[in-house]
Design a protein around this nucleic acid. Structure first.
Length: 496
DNA sequence: GGATGCGGGACAG
DNA sequence: CTGTCCCGCATCC
């Protein structure tokens, strides 16, 4: 059902179809005259919106690569889910292949607790759950709303932690493990393994990095390789449809304009990666003024909230995961405080009723991209640069209608604000850049986050990955690594 | 067993 | 009043 990619590719812009419209998940009425849907995005990050077909299986399942748990927002019209973060080794040790452990937190509370009791397969240190605080100190939230033929998706916040293993990977691994040890004999063996390095298995320890490759047609296809620990993770759709070849945009700051891709096809960045070059800037050139990439890094010290600070009507995101992995503890420096600081600096910023839109002051972006902000994983945050990410923590801003009547009762004001113009004014004297999406489709949209992976040592990585694979799955014929990558689910087919 | 959804309710700002 | 969480319950795979 997705056709956006077909029509909106490079030339058109890097935006998702959904971003071309001005809407908020809380709007009483969402865009209906949709001519094309967005391709399902598994790894959304940043303030993005997508409109999927109601037929899209992934969308129907409210799928996400991130570990998202249901959050009760007391609004039955809109399903809200918040990110659980990622489970990592308490000591932030490196696995045999040099990568870091990045497990998918169990969604179920109990399961998660169990999971956290396990030890790192590599160093036996306790596992630690790194919570997501990408949305103003709170977990990134995803909203799903089905309306007619469409499924509207809106994400708020920028993940400030590495990507966990994707759901499909986790499932595949589980299946694989089961298949490997079906008999009692193996069960015993399995237990043994779980006790030791095997813990890794059950805890979802997989190598996201490795598997994320799986969704790509082929690594080489996107000549993007990330830095050593950076998995190339384009969209990961193994289990489902989405066979549409994705074009990754390898935009560099300089050619941001042409890019491509459709929607954030390449998934994001993972921690270690500094992803300056491929930030959300691309998604909203307009917001950033000329959209010239370099600008993003300027004024990192300038905290002046600018008038257009709330211009960015949406998505921005782009967590910038720094390269040097820090000790978890280090990474966990208190972000909320920072936010607090920013808030003070930025003030409440007249974002208007729909605060969600103007989240990131143009200027702020710079800071944001400096990486200090949301990414706890980033390296030592430049203490002085209060990254300003005026994130409005609003979530379900619908004066929400109690689910009982299930009638969406929207605040009139909010609604009014909805009009484009209102939006602009709302967002502050709407400068031209205010709400680009209103008129400049190409400005809207998409986040091409991780598109600029530093081509590095793919081969090396691959090898490492294989090692890991073997580590994990035992003697897995490494010879067909590529295939495994391409078909992660083969594990289930007893391919090994 | 765990993923998901749902919904009541506590809490904090 | 709002938004975030926590918790239990039910369903499904």
């Amino acid at each position: 059902m997705s056709t956006s990619a077909d029509q909106f590719d490079e030339s058109d812009c890097v935006c998702s179809f959904g971003m071309k419209f001005t809407w908020d998940i809380n709007d009483p009425e969402l865009p209906q005259d949709i001519q094309q849907y967005d391709d399902f995005q598994e790894w959304t990050d940043g303030y993005v919106r997508y409109i999927y077909s109601a037929e899209d299986k992934n969308a129907q399942r409210h799928l996400s690569g991130w570990a998202m748990r249901n959050t009760n927002n007391h609004n039955c019209q809109i399903l809200k889910k918040s990110c659980l973060g990622v489970v990592v080794c308490n000591r932030n040790c490196s696995l045999p292949d040099g990568n870091k452990l990045q497990l998918r937190p169990a969604i179920c509370d109990k399961a998660r607790q169990k999971q956290q009791k396990k030890l790192c397969p590599s160093c036996n240190s306790p596992l630690e759950l790194v919570p997501c605080r990408g949305h103003s100190g709170y977990p990134v939230t995803n909203f799903w709303r089905i309306d007619g033929k469409y499924i509207y998706f809106q994400a708020k916040g920028v993940h400030d932690h590495p990507r966990p293993e994707s759901k499909s990977e986790t499932e595949a691994r589980r299946s694989a493990v089961k298949r490997r040890m079906p008999s009692p004999h193996f069960s015993q063996k399995k237990r043994l393994m779980e006790t030791e390095a095997g813990r890794y298995y059950d805890s979802g320890g997989h190598y996201p990095n490795v598997h994320h490759l799986s969704c790509m047609d082929a690594p080489e296809r996107y000549s993007i390789i990330a830095e050593s620990n950076f998995p190339i993770q384009p969209q990961h759709y193994p289990p489902f449809q989405n066979t549409e070849p994705y074009k990754l945009a390898y935009d560099s700051p300089s050619n941001a304009g042409e890019s491509t891709s459709s929607l954030q096809k390449a998934s994001n960045h993972r921690i270690y990666m500094t992803r300056p070059p491929c930030g959300y800037e691309f998604s909203m050139p307009g917001y950033l003024g000329s959209g010239s990439y370099p600008a993003l890094y300027k004024d990192s010290g300038n905290l002046q909230p600018e008038p257009d600070s709330s211009k960015v009507c949406m998505q921005l995101g782009g967590s910038q995961h720094n390269l040097s992995p820090l000790n978890i503890h280090e990474r966990n420096y208190d972000i909320p405080n920072k936010h607090h600081g920013w808030k003070q600096i930025l003030g409440k910023g007249g974002y208007g009723e729909r605060g969600e839109y103007g989240q990131i002051p143009a200027n702020t972006n710079h800071h944001y991209y400096n990486g200090e902000y949301p990414c706890r994983y980033g390296g030592p945050a430049p203490a002085n640069t209060p990254a300003l990410q005026t994130i409005i923590t609003t979530t379900t801003k619908v004066s929400y209608q109690p689910c009982k009547p299930s009638v969406v009762k929207y605040n009139d004001n909010l609604y009014d604000v909805k009009t484009l113009q209102n939006c602009n004014s709302l967002l502050e004297n709407g400068s031209a850049t205010s709400y680009p999406e209103i008129k400049v489709p190409e400005d809207t949209g998409v986040i091409k986050s991780a598109l600029t992976y530093q081509p590095e040592t793919l081969s090396t990585k691959t090898e490492r990955a294989e090692s890991l694979e073997n580590y994990r799955y035992g003697n897995y014929s490494s010879s067909n690594y590529p295939e495994r990558i391409a078909h992660p689910f083969r594990y289930e087919n007893g391919e090994y």
